[in-house]
Structures are given as C-alpha cells and as structure tokens.
C-alpha cells in the first residue's frame, strides 16, 4: 500500500507502522496479551506541509507521533525521514536526526523542569549536541524567545512564573532552537483557553511560513485541525481510516466514522440545526479489536462483509484514501 509515489518531495514517510504494548500478568509477569495501539499505519508528509492527525482517546495518534520520533520503539514498519530509515539508524546517526525532528507536548506545565530557569531548558538541546559556545547559545535562546513572542528577559525565570500560553510558547522555543525540519505537535493547544489557543495557533502558522517547517499536528479537536492542516488523517482504534486534503476531507468525508465525528461537534451557532449521527456505545478495547472492519460494531452502514473482511486503505479518489467497504462521498 503506497500512500504517495513521489518520494523525493516527502520529508517523512511512514509505512505500515505498528506498535504493540505487552500486557504482563500472572506470577511470572509473562506477556498475556497485547494492546494494539498502532496496527499498520501509513502516511507521508511533504516538505513545508502540515498533516493533521485526529481521533478520539486511544486511537493511537499520540503513539504515532512518538514512534515516528523513535521515542518509543515500534513493533514493525518503516519510518523514512528524508529517505533514510529512522528506525534502523545507528545511535550516532540518530543523534543528528533528533536535531531535525522535534516535539511539542500537550501539557506545558508538565513538560518543563520546574527547577531550572527556562533559558536553560531551551538551551539544553544545544548543550547536548555541543552546538556553539555558551555565549552563542545564549544569543540563540534570546533569538527564539523573541521569535515566539517572549523576550530575552524571560530567560532567567522559572516555569511557574509563566501562564499556560507562555509556557507553551517556551515549549515551542525549545523545539525551534534546534532548527528542526519536522516538529511533531502533540495536542499543543488542548490545555489552553480559546483566546490563548488562537494566539498559539497563529504563532505556529507564522513560524511555518517564515521557516518552512513541516508539522505533524496531532489533536482531538477537529476544528483546530481543520484550521491548521493541509492534509488530515483520521484514526480509529490503531488504524488510519481516512486520509485526504483538508478540503476533500471536510467537504466530502467518505468514511462513516469521519462523518459521525464531524456531525458530533457542537457548533457555536444556535441557528444551525443538524441531523446528528450519534454513534452507539464506546470505542472497543484495542486488546481485542473487533474482527473485520474495526468500526463495524458502531457503524450504521455495516453489512456482513464488514464483520469478516478488513477493508483495504485505498485511494478512492485522487489523494483521498479510505478504508471502508461502503465509502461514499
């Protein structure tokens, strides 16, 4: 299954990525079952593009972000960054790769060390990679702080002296200081109030325009993902179920899960009355995913075939990939 044929312009290519977490049990702590957090996910991201990944809790979107960066080892598949396999890279090669691939986390409170000044947190990557003299590092930290809308005077302060929005700016500065090519943004605005969220989203957009950054933007909020992404992938229970350009996906969703997800979002306009698709039940456990199509127990279109045959993730329209036996626009 090839998601894109033109390898050259793709900064990142992920092929059939799998991550199974073992569940240990019994006296001997043997592996008794596996959580199939990621079960064969493929996608690619072009240079300068933002790929949004959406889905509900436990769909595997965060695991995708972390395995791509090799923060957790995958159970199978390939991750190609500029054509080179990240998962097979030697530790010295990995060190240089890590400079090119950075991450911004959801919780700006938990991701900064409370006991060291933020300037030092931001410079940590530079120090580890032995980039520049201490004086030069200081200059670079001052520069990125300025770039994210703070100033060099903030360098000596501690995380508790900042608001949530400012801390997320610091998180972004810390990624930015390494001059990365790819930033994985894992729910970067979910912990923020809307007025602050808008500030951070605009900042991410500006940085991308100015520095030509590529984002893998992971979020559960469809409105936010629609706002920031060029292409969007929808995940359900460890699988990618739909992947398309933003306009294709939001104007003409083809997978029933995507349709349900979109119709479930309350819109801030009381005059709109919509026919809402209400899914029944909860997301099944990824330990024992349903047979056939994983969405079939909650799907209103499900037929017999859905119980037995796992639908192929295929290109139904140019650039529009769907895994569903009854996909329709």
């Amino acid at each position: 299954m090839t998601v894109s044929n033109s390898t050259s312009e793709n900064l990142l290519e992920v092929r059939n990525l799998k991550k199974y977490f073992p569940i240990k049990g019994g006296l001997m702590r043997r592996t008794v079952a596996q959580v199939k957090a990621l079960d064969g996910v493929s996608f690619s991201i072009k240079k300068g593009e933002t790929l949004g990944l959406v889905g509900e809790s436990g769909c595997g979107k965060t695991t995708t972000g972390r395995t791509v960066l090799r923060l957790i080892p995958p159970s199978g598949g390939e991750v190609l960054f500029e054509g080179q396999d990240v998962l097979k890279a030697s530790s010295s090669r990995m060190r240089t790769l890590r400079r090119d691939m950075q991450i911004v986390f959801q919780d700006p409170y938990a991701s900064l060390n409370p006991r060291i000044p933020v300037g030092q947190s931001i410079a940590e990557g530079l120090t580890i990679h032995n980039i520049g003299t201490p004086k030069e590092r200081l200059d670079q930290v001052a520069q990125v702080l300025d770039r994210v809308g703070l100033n060099s005077g903030h360098m000596r302060r501690f995380p508790h002296e900042f608001s949530g929005g400012q801390r997320q700016r610091i998180g972004i500065a810390r990624a930015l200081v390494m001059q990365p090519k790819l930033i994985v943004c894992d729910e970067p605005v979910s912990a923020l109030d809307v007025s602050i969220q808008a500030q951070v989203l605009n900042l991410l957009n500006d940085l991308q325009k100015d520095l030509g950054l590529t984002y893998l933007f992971i979020a559960h909020n469809l409105s936010v993902v629609e706002h920031i992404s060029n292409r969007v992938g929808v995940m359900y229970l460890g699988r990618m179920v739909e992947l398309a350009s933003r306009d294709q996906l939001f104007r003409k969703p083809m997978h029933p899960y995507t349709k349900a997800l979109m119709s479930a979002i309350p819109l801030p306009d009381p005059t709109i009355k919509r026919d809402r698709i209400i899914l029944e039940g909860d997301v099944p456990s990824p330990v024992n995913p349903p047979s056939g199509c994983r969405f079939h127990p909650r799907c209103w279109l499900a037929q017999d075939i859905c119980k037995h045959d796992d639908p192929i993730f295929e290109e139904k329209e140019p650039g529009h990939f769907v895994a569903c036996h009854f996909a329709q626009g």
């Binding site: 929005g165 809307v194 605009n202 957009n205 629609e226 706002h227 933003r246 939001f250 979002i265 819109l267």
Partner: peptide, 23 residues
C-alpha cells in the same frame, strides 16, 4: 466578541484567527 472570533469553527476556515492580546 473576541471569544467568538478566536474560536476555530468547523467548515469555516480563516487564514488567521482573531486573538485577544494579553491575559
């Protein structure tokens, strides 16, 4: 007004979201 304008709305993409400066 600021609160409503800074909320991204599904199906209504704007280039830039309005923000409320400061905190």
């Amino acid at each position: 007004q600021g609160l409503i304008a800074s909320t991204p709305v599904l199906g209504n993409v704007r280039d830039e979201l309005e923000t409320i400066p400061g905190q």
